[in-house]
Amino acid sequence: MNTTELINALVQDQAAPRWRLPAALRIGLAAGAVPAALAVLLWLGPRAGLLALLPTAPLLLKFATTLGLALCALALTLRLARPDGTPGAWPWGLATVALLLAGGVALELALAPAAEWGARLRGQNALACLILVPLLALPPLAGLLLALRQGAPRRPGLSGTLAGLAAGGVAAALYALHCVDDSPLFLAMWYGLGIGFTGLLGGLAGRIWLRW
């Protein structure tokens, strides 16, 4: 067909779409976070004494880093969902989260005797963390990717990775309600791996599903 013929057809298609991605992303994430939250609260169960421990430094660090990562990754996902999107200042947010985590790790290494480092790194249930964080991240990741299909990201793989990190951050924060391993060493290693795996998964899925 020639190009003017194509234009003739395009003009006839008047379904006027609107940019609803900000709301769609929030709904996708929230809809996915509900089953994940229910799984943590009803199936895994919150850890003993959660409320009393909430204002302590290790838990604050856990929630600040995981939720901070989720927030920055979500904002970047939204910005980069337009073909001409730019990251703005949000990469600095990611850097701040990384710095916060590095600070926590450094403090832990400085305060804990070297003989205990290994035990704190291994924690009580590293394997569960490694498996459950990506598993809990699956529903929010699916919700985000579904919403992102209305977007037009210049780099589908990168956008998928960011969606994966956002979902992983939310899943990790939820898992932290259950997890009893509080050392920043454990957080950096096992939560990090779990979230990283989710990001990888999101990147692969994005390359396939977010193509346009």
């Binding site: 073909p83 001409d84 210049r154 346009w212």
Partner: peptide
């Protein structure tokens, strides 16, 4: 043209059209 049409909602009307088209 097909992508411009189907993704036209991804243009932010507060921004210039040129960079969006070029992308």
């Amino acid at each position: 043209l097909l992508a411009i049409h189907l993704k036209r909602h991804s243009w932010d009307s507060a921004r210039p059209l040129g960079p969006w088209l070029a992308a």
